[in-house]
């Protein structure tokens, strides 16, 4: 049975402390935005989860490359873990964005480049799981999963770029409402940076735990198959 590393325990505790710390900063130590009011506070965790989601898909592709080069299962576990965690962060970003958009833009959904790209990204990585589920051996899952993770990372920036190009040519109905639309006071910046740091630590902890889970699963399956 692979032992739980003390560093992982530390990371788990750290991520809890950081997320709670960032939450306290956001709730009690940031001013309410003049025009948007309290709902603007969604922004901190919204941007942080979008960032964490994006980063984890890049990590998944790096894991894919490392698997194809080294052919060690742990890189596939990393890839799988990152995509699973990334899907959750992507969904969190979309849902928190909707909560913000409903009062501010007066609609739940806008076909805006960042929103649309995130939604497409979710669909792409859902397909990753369908692909894995339809393959028989762990080796095929790892190999073809790695290929798909790499190809996906190539197309996501292209999608973003093409939708943005599409929007700049077409009339802009909604001015995008993130950092560009309002200026942040120093205290807002503090909370924003704290959220980013907290979500990066949380991301690392989640991916590590999920990778460990995959390792344990494989370990168990091997033990069950022993005579």
């Amino acid at each position: 049975m692979p032992k739980k590393q003390p560093l992982l325990t530390l990371l788990n505790i750290l991520s809890a402390v950081f997320v709670i710390g960032a939450l306290i900063l956001i709730l009690f130590f940031t001013p309410e935005e003049a025009q948007m009011g309290a709902v603007q506070k969604v922004f901190y965790f919204h941007v942080a989860s979008a960032w964490a989601g994006m980063l984890s898909f890049v990590i998944a592709a790096v894991g894919g490359v490392l698997y194809l080069v080294k052919r060690e299962m742990r890189w596939d576990w990393l890839s799988l873990a990152s995509i699973e965690v990334g899907l959750v962060f992507g969904l969190a970003a979309i849902l928190s964005g909707m909560i913000w958009a409903h009062p501010i833009w007066n609609t739940w959904w806008v076909w805006e480049p960042r929103l649309t790209t995130t939604a497409i990204m979710e669909l792409i990585y859902l397909a990753y799981f369908i692909l894995r589920g339809a393959l028989n051996t762990p080796e095929a899952k790892a190999r073809l999963g790695a290929v798909f993770a790499i190809v996906s990372v190539i197309t996501v920036p292209l999608t973003f770029f093409s939708i943005r190009l599409y929007r700049t040519i077409h009339p802009v109905v909604f001015v995008s409402g993130d950092s560009a639309a309002f200026t942040m006071s120093p205290r807002m910046w503090n909370a924003f940076i704290a959220s980013l740091v907290a979500f990066n630590v949380l991301l690392a902890a989640l991916i590590w735990n999920r990778t460990r889970l995959a390792a344990l699963q494989t370990h168990n399956e091997l033990e069950e198959n022993l005579p």
Partner: peptide, 30 residues
């Protein structure tokens, strides 16, 4: 070539291809 190796065979291709081909389709349509 990827989807043909799965149990579901060719059923999978559109699910893999359409979201990834989106930039191509947007650029071509425009």
């Amino acid at each position: 070539a990827l989807s043909i190796q799965t149990r579901t065979r060719d059923v999978l291709l559109p699910v893999l291809l359409y979201p990834l081909a989106l930039p191509v389709l947007i650029a071509a349509v425009e």
